[in-house]
């Protein structure tokens, strides 16, 4: 079987398109590269959607935590504490079994027990809490002078938030948020190891890497392949977020701009 055929057979295997059975015996390098790459579709799906949706909830949570009103502040604080204080792995398990019970009560909840929605919800809430904390920190470090200037121009309420507070908050939070995005993508590898079933063996990249390592009893091929994919993903995240960072900082003189610094903040 040529490598091209492998690509057409297994390229979209993680979505259930193409060959139904996973390869048995004869685990060529090509098969491993294609199948693990196919699994990356899920990692990107989870990461991109959770980050995009989480961005808005994170802003809300950060504003809530910075609010003077206890009614907004307390729930936001608890939300952040709940999701940052416990392991994502346990959150996945708990959410999965919670969704199972809900499904028993009402069939309406049954999509939540499959990974594409259930795990996405958990990742969405998790990243909202982590980025909410980052945005909150940035919100507190907005220079006083900027806010006074906004007042002096007669801005208030929504227009002050939209024109001064929010852009400055984003600008200050962006390096940390880039980091969060990278580790969000890394966290997506936990999904299929934590209760959520991979139906018909449609799993993510780590699921397939683990599959190959189990079958060939040789971890030195599949895991480095996975590592390459993730390094590429990390680099593209850095490129994309770096472009946004330049845009957010474009009004500042070059030497005061914040550089992106990637620091490992790791597992959740």
């Amino acid at each position: 079987m040529s490598c091209w055929e492998t690509l057409t057979d297994y390229g979209l295997r993680s979505l259930g398109i193409g060959e139904r059975l996973l390869p048995r015996g004869d685990y060529t390098l090509c098969k491993q590269v294609v199948l693990i790459g196919s699994g990356m579709i899920w990692n990107i799906y989870f990461g991109v959607l959770a980050l995009m949706a989480g961005f808005f909830l994170a802003t809300t949570v950060a504003l809530g935590k910075a609010s003077e009103n206890r009614l907004f502040r307390k729930p936001a604080e608890w939300f952040i504490f709940l999701f940052r204080g416990s392991p994502l792995f346990i959150q996945f398990f708990f959410a999965y079994f919670l969704f199972l019970s809900l499904k028993g009560v009402a069939p309406f909840f049954s999509p939540l027990t499959s990974a594409w929605l259930g795990a996405l919800v958990v990742l969405f809430l998790n990243t909202s809490a982590y980025s909410g904390e980052i945005f909150y920190g940035a919100l507190l470090s907005i220079p006083k002078g900027d806010l006074e200037a906004a007042d002096a121009y007669g801005l208030s309420g929504w227009s002050k938030f939209r024109r001064v507070v929010w852009p400055t908050m984003l600008r200050l939070a962006w390096p940390a948020y880039t980091n969060e995005a990278i580790f969000m993508f890394h966290a997506t590898t936990l999904v299929f190891f934590s209760g959520f079933p991979a139906s018909q063996q449609n799993g993510d990249a780590l699921y397939y890497a683990n599959f190959f390592a189990d079958k060939t009893f040789n971890p030195f091929v599949p895991y480095p392949i996975l590592a390459c994919y993730f390094v590429l993903l990390t680099l593209s995240v850095i490129t994309l977020f770096g472009a946004v960072n330049r845009r957010l900082n474009r009004h500042l003189p070059a030497e005061t701009r914040q550089r992106l610094r990637i620091r490992p903040q790791i597992l959740r």
Partner: peptide, 14 residues
């Protein structure tokens, strides 16, 4: 830095 650490966990054990 660039690779999910859970992959390292699975890798190193074997």
């Amino acid at each position: 830095r660039g690779v999910p650490d859970i992959a390292f966990f699975l890798f190193f054990v074997i």
